[in-house]
Design a protein around this nucleic acid. Structure first.
Length: 573
RNA sequence: GCCCCUGUAGCUCAGUAGGAUAGAGCAACGGUUUCCUAAACUGUAGGUCGUAGGUUCGAUUCCUAUCGGGGGCACCA
């Protein structure tokens, strides 16, 4: 099934001036230039060719050569009717060959997640849902930061605190304890302290780096300790991801590629891509065509440790070999752009990745406070993701009791609604911005539950559910879309017809904000229809049945799009 | 120093192949409730799209310069 727009002609676009027409075509203007012809004449020819089709109510030529199309109501009704009974709402969801790896989340061991991780998690999650919906073979992977210098910092910090633990005894031959030597709370407190000390004191930093290198070389006590750290951390990370309703197919952290890193580095050396420079192993990725400086990729530190780039290269090697990936999307802070450019160049140049592999850094901007600086807590500390979620949900609870809604519901049900509403507020507030732009995170603003917010959308959807419930109770059957009695109704059908185009554009640009705009526009158009066409009071059965079908179709579309944003709709609110 | 991103209404942001009168939310000032959830609907006002050139029939969009803001640039991730 094709979209209403593309049923006319593929080059036709939605109207820029809805007051003049429903769809428009600017092709005559573009073609006229290359053909050396008058655009209006060309437009007349196109119009004559198309005007025979019965779908058109009207075709006009306007301005310098725009073609303006208006469809007959019968045609619009027919399209809406067909799509409304289609399981995928007219969208091509057939399985596609392309295998897409989406790398997102990327939390670090021992560091609680913060607002930056929020963006990666919900943008990445939206993309995985979108690509899956469109039929792509998606593999999502939470690339846990469990193998970097922060591990060395933690190990050396703990050694200073508790030197007698067996993990630090090089000659210890027994079994290491099954229980972790510290709690998760201690671990999370220990990291910021260790990090601060290392930054301030180069000797401590050197010690941390030595510990990191030794860990990476497999020193048994350090590995045992490291496993404890990872296990503790993963437990708390899971709590946050669960609250966000974000799931991954894999949790393959950097450490997973430990063996592969040395293999890959050896191969790069053997094939002449890597060389030694100032004691470190590096790979040059600059080409003759470059006008800018591209620093070489650092593969091995002079002390023997691997780096961020090494693990990313090894990871690509794995994803090509094991997942047979055609495309890899990295949903990572845009400030890491240079890193990815280097890594992408390295794998292409060395042949680790085939030329056909699409490597894409899906970058995103920072989350700022009202002052335009990165978002912090009131006392200037890092806002933890878990705390942020709590704030948002508390706000929703507060608002619900204020507005005295869902008063007939149990305490538990209201709590559940508050969680859904809070998460919708949070996710929609983030996703509606283009991912690359920095945005101001204003709790009051998106918790105000007014305007272009998640809760507004939920409210619209919930009202539809309510109508459908009442219709069922009254014994009104859902018919098929058969009438178009008002402009509001026609506009709703036309808006619904934009569904597939929106999804395709969002996927092409990896831009969930297109979905946000669409579902918001749809809600607005629906709310107008809702105001003007009183469904349950309508006495004509055909009209009422048609409206119920239209309303049900709107609900499916809204729930689907919200679902692609990771937002669920409650039954009542 | 080099490179990348960015500058759109009072504020926060959209603007999906160069197209007609540049959009939305909030804030401001109005209107709508015997009516399916008023967390709604709706009207008005508000912009020389940072500035100056260029390409084009046509530029917020592409190119150049310039100013302002942010970011990145070998042993952190």
């Amino acid at each position: 099934m094709s979209t209403l727009r593309s049923k006319i002609e593929s080059v036709v676009v939605d109207a820029a001036r809805p007051d003049l027409c429903q769809f428009q075509c600017n092709g005559a203007l573009a073609v006229a230039k290359s053909a050396g012809r008058n655009p209006r004449e060309l437009a007349v020819e196109i119009m004559e060719r198309l005007s025979e089709k019965p779908m058109f109510k009207n075709i006009e030529i306007a301005g310098p050569g725009f073609l303006n199309f208006t469809l007959t109501d019968a045609y619009i009704i027919n399209h809406a009717s067909e799509v409304s009974v289609d399981e995928s709402m007219g969208c091509d969801t057939a399985a596609k060959e392309l295998r897409v790896v989406i790398d997102f989340g990327g939390p670090n061991v021992a560091k609680p997640m913060h607002v930056g991780h929020l963006r990666s998690a919900i943008i990445g999650d939206s993309l995985q849902r979108l690509f899956r919906y469109l039929g792509y073979n998606v593999i999502s992977d939470n690339h846990l930061g469990d193998w970097g210098t922060q591990m060395g910092m933690l190990i050396s910090e703990l050694r200073r605190r508790e030197p007698s633990l067996p993990y630090f005894d090089e000659f210890f031959g027994g079994e290491y304890p099954a229980e972790a030597p510290i709690s998760i709370v201690d671990l999370e407190l220990m990291y910021p302290e260790a990090s601060k000390k290392c930054k301030a004191d180069s000797e401590l930093m050197a010690e941390a780096i030595v510990c990191t290198d030794q860990l990476q070389q497999g020193r048994p006590g350090f590995v045992a300790l490291w496993k404890h750290f990872v296990n503790l951390s993963v437990k708390t990370l899971n709590v946050d991801f669960e609250k966000l309703d974000v799931k991954f197919d894999h949790w393959l952290g950097e450490s997973y590629y430990m063996d592969r890193m040395s293999t890959v580095v050896d191969r790069l050396k053997k094939d002449g891509f890597a060389e030694t420079s100032e004691g470190a192993t590096v790979m040059h990725v600059v080409t003759e065509k470059d006008t800018k400086e591209i620093p070489p990729v650092m593969l091995v530190k002079s002390g023997g440790g691997f780096l961020y780039a090494t693990s990313d290269i090894a990871t690509i090697d794995y994803r090509v070999e094991t997942f047979n990936a055609d495309r890899i999307c990295y949903v990572v802070d845009k400030r890491q752009g240079l890193h990815f450019e280097q890594v992408f160049r390295a794998v292409k140049k060395s042949g680790i990745a085939p030329e056909s592999l699409m490597l894409e850094h899906v970058g995103f901007g920072t989350v700022n406070g009202a002052d335009g600086k990165p978002y912090k807590t009131r006392d200037g500390g890092v806002m933890k993701l878990g705390d942020l979620i709590t704030l948002v949900i508390d706000k929703a609870v507060e608002r619900i009791s204020e507005a005295n809604v869902a008063a007939d519901q149990s305490e538990e049900a209201r709590r559940e609604i508050a969680e859904i509403v809070g998460m919708a507020a949070l996710k929609f507030a983030d996703l509606q911005n283009h991912r690359l732009s920095d945005y101001v995170f204003d709790l009051e603003k998106f918790s105000s539950f007014e305007g272009k917010t998640g809760p507004y959308l939920l409210y619209s959807a919930v009202r539809i559910k309510s109508i459908l419930r009442k219709a069922t109770d009254a014994g009104f059957p859902v018919g098929s879309i058969a009438v178009c009695t008002s402009e509001a109704e026609r506009n709703l059908m036309l808006e619904l017809a934009k569904f597939e185009d929106t999804l395709i554009a969002a996927a092409a640009d990896t831009a969930p904000n297109y979905l946000c705009d669409y579902v918001y526009d749809l809600s607005k158009v629906f709310n107008r229809f809702f105001k003007e066409c009183h469904i349950l009071r309508e006495e004509n059965e055909t009209t009422r049945g048609s409206w119920l079908a239209l309303v049900s179709y709107t609900l499916s579309t809204m729930e689907t799009v919200l679902g692609l944003l990771g937002i669920q709709v409650p039954e009542r609110m």
